[in-house]
Amino acid sequence: MSDAQPFVEIRHARKNYGYIEVLKDISLTVERGQIVAIIGPSGSGKSTLLRAINDLDPLTEGEVLLEGVQVNKTLPHRQYEKHINEMREHIGMVFQHFNLFPHLTVRENVTMAPKLLKGISKAEADALAEEQLAHVGLLDRIDYYPSRLSGGQKQRCAIARALAMKPKLMLFDEATSALDPELVEEVNLVMKKLAEEHMTMIIVTHEMDFAASVCDRVLFMDQGYVVEEGPPEVVFRNPKEARTREFLRKHLGDAT
């Protein structure tokens, strides 16, 4: 009875920007080791939902839980800050535009947070950087500044930076959308490797092939709702909802 509670649970999530409701009562659970893809048209709320999981875009209503602990707790400011920083150590995030720290080398990008938050020594930090950068195939660029990396290398560095905190959960927001087509594969390979290592991942993507080959579950979002969800072979081959079919017709068409 170790896993009575879901690993990640979102309960009745709502999000408003002014009068506009961007997320409309979304509930979902993700089990440990699961890999979930979120697909859907632009503006459907995919990023907002993903960013609600680590409270980067706080929900208007509803709860996010990680291993039964509420992430978006309502607490006095100081206590909330302490709580959310602790929670975020367990939730890695990768952005479309990498957001590497340009004033730090690849090594420093990877080790800055662990050094600051976990108080590891310089030797430990170096070992950590080497381990994580070897993992994403970037060891030979360890002392480069981000400005001298290709887009694919930048994103692999960003993944290594997130993994260096040893997160339990990884969030990807269109990790390959800003890349030249020929650089997409090297990032996808790193994500596949993480999948093989049973990292729990929630992946917002426009790449249907990748979602189909890597993910255990696919969520289709439209206008703030999760319209349909299920295993990729069902959602992609045999979608129940008309909106899903329409979206897939356009996107699978585009892909070829």
Binding site: N85, R88, F95, N99, M112, L117, A158, A162
Partner: peptide, 15 residues
Amino acid sequence: DTGQMEAARTLGLSR
């Protein structure tokens, strides 16, 4: 860029 603050906060850094 605001993404810099976001990336840092996401790693668990305080403001």
